[in-house]
């Protein structure tokens, strides 16, 4: 992180309010201690996150003393894009992929920190720690710079930007363990509690507000659930769980038979979907 701040003009930290973001923010505060991290936080909002996430985000911004920038794609806002009427693919593309590109262009950020990890998904296993994007934000997996030792080539042409993934080499277990050891605050959604959910196509979706249209005869029922990953509530599957402490969550994780991103409906849209999204400018 210090490397980026030293070599780039306008860095920003992408803050998605999830546990990886929590770890990133914590690391940033440690890296620049006793100073404050010399960059803002950017939340690319979709208006469809869990209410708890918004509350948590605002609290963390105040606590860290860092500037919080919130970007909502004005086009998506005007067209009232939502996952119910437009499908998860268009929803994600407009709010997240296009939204992120707009925000980076608007603020002319030349480096953006992200919390992606190589253990999450196959195409991310090959991602560099410093990942170069062309002036159009595209990622070319065949034309990446070799990263030797801990030397990062940060030279770039005007308009080129870089996504930086400081916790690339962490595993899900490392993240949880670090959260526990350092007592890093995370949204309570990660811990099990009674929440109103409906089951759709085998996935438990939490009814977080009344914007969610219910099918005839569909009634939310209270179940003890938690989330392994946080995103837009209509697109984030809950798992049934009694784990209401960090230790219990880690225990369940160790026994889990499905990988972390499974709750993310966007990954299953099409083959090589993550790689395709990345080439288009998604994280």
């Amino acid at each position: 992180m210090r490397e980026v701040v030293a070599e780039f003009e306008r860095p920003v930290m992408l803050y998605s309010v999830g546990k990886d973001s929590a770890v990133m923010l914590h690391l940033a505060r440690k890296a620049f201690f006793p100073g404050r991290p010399p960059f803002p936080l950017l939340h690319v909002d979709t208006t469809w996150k869990f209410r708890d996430m918004y509350a948590f985000r605002d609290r963390m911004a105040v606590e860290s003393g860092m500037e919080l920038l919130i970007h909502r794609n004005p086009e998506a806002l005007a067209r009232r894009i939502n996952p119910f009427d437009h499908g998860s693919s268009l929803h994600t593309d407009l709010w997240k992929t296009q939204g992120l590109r707009q925000a980076l262009d608007m603020h002319r950020f030349d480096a953006a920190f992200g919390g992606a990890r190589r253990d999450e998904e196959k195409s991310r296993a090959k991602e560099r720690i410093f990942s170069f994007r062309s002036a159009g934000h595209r990622w070319d997996p065949k034309n990446q710079r070799p990263e030797l030792w801990n030397l990062y080539n940060t030279r770039r042409a005007p308009g080129e930007t870089v996504r930086v993934f400081p916790i690339s080499n962490w595993t899900e277990l490392d993240v949880w363990q670090y959260i526990q050891l350092e007592a890093i605050p995370i949204p309570s959604l990660y811990l099990a509690a009674e929440r109103p959910v409906v089951s759709r196509g085998g996935t438990l979706i939490m009814v977080d507000d009344d914007r969610m249209p219910l099918a005839p005869g569909e009634t939310p029922e209270l179940r003890s659930v938690r989330f392994r990953t946080l995103g837009c509530y209509p697109l984030t599957g809950a798992v049934e769980s009694q784990a209401d402490t960090l230790t219990a969550v880690i225990g369940e994780m160790l026994l889990a038979r499905t990988s972390e991103r499974q709750g993310r409906m966007i990954d299953h849209d099409q083959a090589a979907s993550m790689e395709k999204k990345k080439q288009e400018g998604y994280f």
């Binding site: 190589r118 196959k122 296993a125 090959k126 065949k142 690339s168 080499n169 090589a272 790689e275």
Partner: peptide, 21 residues
């Protein structure tokens, strides 16, 4: 399981460094 990128799936060769844990 390991050959992640679409292009290399088609070619059947690993073309980049992949890190696994």
């Amino acid at each position: 399981l390991v050959d992640g990128l679409a292009a290399e799936r088609e070619q059947g060769i690993t073309i980049d460094v992949a890190y696994r844990f």
